[in-house]
Every structure is written in structure tokens, then in C-alpha cells.
């Protein structure tokens, strides 16, 4: 059992839901990323998703894309990111996974990437450009190492295919709320609730919902059907807008924002 399996089991027993923030590694630098992750866990997050900057992220909207560009402009390397993660001791904080392009994993070598990630204390990977047909080789490596390979299901995924993806997934299913790229939305499509409810009947895996979630009313809408909620661009945007301001102040603001969403999540228990 990976740390992710244990986490969701504990949450289920307690009747609670996971709050799962996303942060870009190295934006604006790795020490700050480490401080943000500590703050996110300290405020009650269950799992942290760490974005590995990539030069050509086609599933990402302008906010995350720009954060990747900023990090890469400062030449952040995967090895530096893993070193930062190791320094955080995820076993003390909570499970962490990377959002990482298959271009990066392939270049490092599948075995190598997974083993280095495990050595750093990571529990899994979300690979947004690796559909189920192409996931076989990486899935085999992950299975051997008890490293979760979290796969995505979207509103455009046909139902038969969704079942197949669920069978191949470990850790949790990442349900993408919208047909589109990452980024905050004012409103989310109401059919998510029914789609996730259907998916729930097909699998015992935890289901986390991401893309577009940024407001307490989103949390209230989705918490009843989800095991976890993922919030990315709203946090990355706050970091981008805070440039030049005292870091303590920015950390507190991010923490307060997370608390606001967590309160909405706890209210749905």
C-alpha cells in the first residue's frame, strides 16, 4: 500500500475529504516552494501536488504555463526539485505527487525517474500527456515499486474507456471537471456531479476532482461526490501576484485562502 492508499483509507474511515493543493516547483524559487508546501500541510491539506515545470505543457492554461516559464527561466532542474522534496521529508508532512510530462519521464528513463522520485519521498505521479494506451511501460514500473500512477478521466471520456482507465489507475482517479485547460472558472458544469456519481459505481478507487476549482461554492458543489478536491491555478496565481512582497505575508495569505476552502470542505462532512 502506498502512502496515498493509506491516506484515503484514513479519510474514509473518518468521513472526511482530501484537500489537495497544487504548486509549481521553483516558482519563483525552490526554497519558497518548500515554504509553501509546509504552509499548505500546516493548514490542513491532505496531499500536495507538485508541478514539474515543462517547456510545452499543452493541458495548462496561462497561469500554470507562465509559472513553468518563470521556473525554467531560472534553470530549475528535476534533480534540484527532488532534492528539495527530500529535504521536506514528505513522510512527516503527508503524501506528495508530481504532475509531470511524459517528455521529462521518458528523457530521464522510466525506472530512473520512478526510483529517484521514491528516494525523494514522493508517492506517485500524474502524467497528463500519457493516455491509457501509452501508459503500459510506465504503469509496469510503477506497479513493481508501489508508486501510484494517477490517471485522468475527463468529460469527453466515453464510459467504456473510463472503466478501462479506472482499472489501470492506482492511488486515486483524477477526474477533470471541464473540457479544457487548467485555470480558475467562475462556474463549473453541473453535470460533473452525475458523471462522478456514475464513476463511483464503477470503481472503489478514491476520486479527486480538479481543473477550475477555486471558490468555496465550487467546494460545496463537489465535496458530496468527491473524495478529494484539487486546487491549482488559484494558488499559483497568488504566488505570481505576490512578487516583490514579503514572503511571510504571502505564505499567510495562501494559508488563509486554503483555510477558507477547507472550511467549506469540512462543512460538507
Amino acid at each position: 500500500m502506498s502512502a496515498i492508499d493509506t491516506l484515503f483509507q484514513q479519510l474514509r474511515t473518518a468521513g472526511r475529504k482530501a484537500f489537495m493543493p497544487f504548486v509549481t516547483a521553483g516558482d519563483p524559487d525552490l526554497p519558497f516552494t518548500a515554504a509553501v508546501i509546509r504552509e499548505l500541510f500546516a493548514r490542513g491539506s491532505s496531499l500536495c501536488e507538485l508541478g514539474i515545470p515543462y517547456s510545452d505543457p499543452i493541458a495548462d492554461g496561462p497561469v500554470i504555463q507562465a509559472s513553468y516559464t518563470r521556473a525554467l527561466d531560472r534553470h530549475v532542474k528535476v534533480s534540484d526539485i527532488l532534492e528539495m522534496v527530500a529535504g521536506l521529508r514528505p513522510s512527516d508532512l503527508g503524501p506528495m505527487v508530481t504532475m509531470v510530462s511524459y517528455a521529462i519521464i521518458y528523457r530521464h528513463g522510466l525506472e530512473q525517474y520512478v526510483h529517484h522520485a521514491i528516494d525523494a519521498g514522493l508517492s506517485g505521479a500524474i502524467v497528463p500527456d500519457l493516455p491509457v494506451e501509452e501508459a503500459g511501460p510506465l504503469a509496469a514500473v510503477c506497479r513493481r515499486s508501489d508508486f501510484s500512477l494517477i490517471q485522468l478521466i475527463t468529460p469527453t471520456t466515453p464510459r467504456e474507456r473510463a472503466r478501462r482507465i479506472a482499472e489501470q489507475t492506482t492511488g486515486f482517479i483524477y477526474y477533470v471537471s471541464v473540457t479544457g485547460i487548467t485555470g480558475e472558472r467562475t462556474e463549473l458544469p453541473p453535470e460533473i456531479v452525475d458523471n462522478v456519481a456514475w464513476l463511483r459505481e464503477q470503481t472503489d478507487l478514491p476520486i479527486s476532482i480538479g481543473f477550475g476549482i477555486s471558490r468555496p461554492d465550487h467546494v460545496r458543489m463537489l465535496a458530496p461526490v468527491a473524495d478529494g478536491l484539487i486546487v491549482g491555478s488559484a494558488i499559483v496565481r497568488r504566488i505570481a501576484e505576490a512578487r516583490g512582497r514579503p514572503r511571510e505575508e504571502v505564505l499567510r495569505e495562501i494559508g488563509d485562502y486554503v483555510c477558507e476552502l477547507l472550511a467549506a470542505l469540512e462543512a460538507e462532512r
Binding site: I58, A59, Y102, A103, P128, D129, L130, P131, V132, E133, E134, Q151, L152, I153, T154, P155, T156, T157, P158, R161, I165, V176, T179, G180
Partner: peptide, 12 residues
Amino acid sequence: GGRYVPETLTRA
């Protein structure tokens, strides 16, 4: 070759 794209695009 192959098809390394986000799940959203696979149906299209």
C-alpha cells in the same frame, strides 16, 4: 509515433 496527448483529446 503513438499518441501522447491529454485524455480530453483522445475521443476526438
